[in-house]
Design a protein around this nucleic acid. Structure first.
Lengths: 158, 158
DNA sequence: GCTGAAAGTCGGCACCT
DNA sequence: AGGTGCCGACTTTCAGC
């Protein structure tokens, strides 16, 4: 179970993944060794999945972002497995979800420009076996990103 | 401009945001001081937006994820500004985008359970001024997350 | 723009409360 | 559980190539 200090630690590391253990210890009012032990435990128990640098997509040449809904022909089970295996290797696909509703999959796509995007849709996505219908929604503006998980309002984590 | 070593640095830090400068220097075949200078430059020039611990949502009590499309009454410009200002403070909204298509906004929602989700939709989202239509798609499975930005296939960053 | 050395700082562990 | 102290490793700066 998480206590209030654990939640503080998670919140701090979420905001700044490179916080030194000493600074972290100061912020949660613990000695460095006690703080480090808690962090290691949180990592081992799976509360922290990893640490990552957040790169700036436009700066790196990715100026197009879009959400694409894909329907596949459900009369064939193999196509589902094949689809999942295929998208794992496609760099243009940032995120992928199985969703309820009319479509089977929701994909978040990142591409260099619109030409790159349309080529990807027509010549890559559209040619995966079983793909029936593709509906694209371009991102015009990114209002909020990766909203913080904590504070957990009234939540009682298992 | 980025050279090959910069790209290697970005790729490494993307995969592991807590890599020590010394280990990073080894991996890109540079001395620690030269490596550190490049990292600082990359940060200052905005290629790296930050470092964050990736927290495990289910472990923290968030078991429901959904994409919600929102249409607002476009006859009133103020509602747009108001909507943006309101969603910034809502913890349940992880990401928010302005998109093309029938809806105005696409929101990624995280909630503790279905009751939390439906309460949020009915009593919070639905009551924001100007909101006309809400369409929800629940996430049944998360197939891919935060696909890596690099390597930049054939891209020539500005 | 990189290297190498020096000084300050930190992480990790043993031990104690 | 948390705190103290120690040592080896690391970060960071700066002079020099």
């Amino acid at each position: 179970m998480l206590d209030q200090i654990d939640v503080k630690i998670l919140r701090q590391l979420q905001a700044n993944g490179r916080l030194s253990n000493q600074d972290l210890a100061d912020q949660v009012a613990l000695s460095p060794s006690a703080c480090l032990r808690r962090v290691k435990t949180l990592e081992q128990e799976g509360y922290i999945d990893g640490y990552h640098a957040l790169l700036n997509a436009p700066k790196l040449g990715y100026r197009v972002e879009a959400f694409v809904q894909v329907r596949i022909d459900q009369s064939n089970d193999d196509w589902h497995d094949q689809f999942i295996a295929t998208i794992a290797d496609l760099d243009e696909i940032a995120d992928a979800y199985i969703i309820t509703g009319n479509a089977n999959y929701l994909l978040r796509i990142r591409a260099r420009d619109f030409e790159h995007f349309s080529t990807f849709i027509i010549h890559t996505l559209n040619r995966i076996a079983g793909v029936r219908d593709i509906q694209s929604n371009m991102v015009m503006q990114n209002l909020k990103n990766n909203g913080k998980l904590l504070p957990l309002p009234n939540s009682v984590p298992k």
